[in-house]
Write a protein that binds this DNA or RNA. Structure first.
Lengths: 181, 181
DNA sequence: TTATAATTTCAGAAATTCCTGAAATTACGA
DNA sequence: TCGTAATTTCAGGAATTTCTGAAATTATAA
């Protein structure tokens, strides 16, 4: 569980970035450590590696679990709980997108749906409501699409991304053959 | 500049969400107000509407400008500065993506590039470096793709999103006709 | 069951972020 | 240039978030 200087750099960077990502510095560091460590770690391993209090590590692990970013693991003959980051980084990415969406988008979407229930045409709220409508459309289009992409097979998703701007021609071609809204 | 209860709900919600989006509550509220208000507002309008201190509004406007989310505007015959959110919500969305990328992704990418400069094969850092390599590949693939999509025409982007999972067939078809990596 | 290892909870200390009011600076019209 | 309106800066108080240590709880092996 000793952390090399090389690893330390990565861990510290992740800690600092953590704050921009809506997690605390220590939670960021804990995740970084788990991410670059091959074998699962228990809470005391993490305490030793990073020097945080035991309770802080416990809360950090709980938070990472609530994000579904780490997997708890029992090792036979050891009563401690071990944790590791998923091996598949695409899986991590997908989870991250899902969770951020749940926390950062969905509440706004439901607020908007509610605000758009009753029609404010002809009142002082007319412009505001039109703007909310725009926002709702954009968010729904984006998240519906994200849903779709999430369900693409991994290989297809990678192809899609590598295709990049080339997708433009593909769609243009399709548009000529069959109308699309 | 009086805010109706209807508008107030939206503004307060945005304020609360602000914290999850890496801006403060007051900055969130200022943006919400500008977003749902048709005419440009000056700082004092905002003070009157939201009840924050003048200096706080000033700092908030500066921050929103640093995000390029509001446009300052001079009205002739009035020495005050007026601000408004862009009319085109797609434009807002694109700017948001660009700025978040700049703040949340790019620093990590440059750290990774640096860490991958020298080869750690055969050292204790071997696994860590492999993980960083994975992370770099994923981020680069994602951001390169985002770049491409950003440059698509608006209409094409919308078509792409409406297409959703249908893109899968498109790509499969293409894959059969011409090999792609 | 009992003993103890492991984890979690939680009150409050420490650190950070946010916000304000006062003073300084800037920009504009006369 | 001068006077004033508008904006910005900034020190420090307020509020929030983060982190810790001690105590409580939970879980497992004997």
């Amino acid at each position: 569980m000793k952390v090399t200087p090389y690893q330390q750099d990565f861990i510290l960077h992740f800690g600092e970035m953590g704050s921009r990502w809506g997690i605390s510095r220590t939670v960021g560091q804990i995740y970084a450590l788990l991410f670059i460590t091959e074998q699962p770690l228990n809470a005391d391993d993490i305490v030793r590696a990073l020097g945080f209090s035991r309770s802080n590590v416990s809360m950090g692990l709980k938070e990472l679990q609530s994000w579904r970013l780490i997997q708890p693991q029992h090792l036979p003959g050891d009563r401690r709980e071990y944790y590791r980051a998923p091996e598949d980084i695409w899986q991590i990415f997908r989870t991250l997108v899902e969770e951020r969406r749940k926390r950062e988008i969905d509440p706004t979407l439901s607020m908007l749906r509610n605000a758009l229930m009753n029609d404010r045409t002809g009142t002082d709220d007319e412009y505001a409501q039109a703007r909310m409508q725009d926002m709702q459309s954009l968010i729904e289009l984006t998240t519906d699409w994200l849903d779709d992409v999430q369900h693409l097979e991994r290989g297809t998703a990678i192809k899609l991304m590598k295709l990049g701007g080339g997708v433009s021609k593909l769609i243009a071609g399709r548009g000529k053959r069959a109308g699309n809204s």
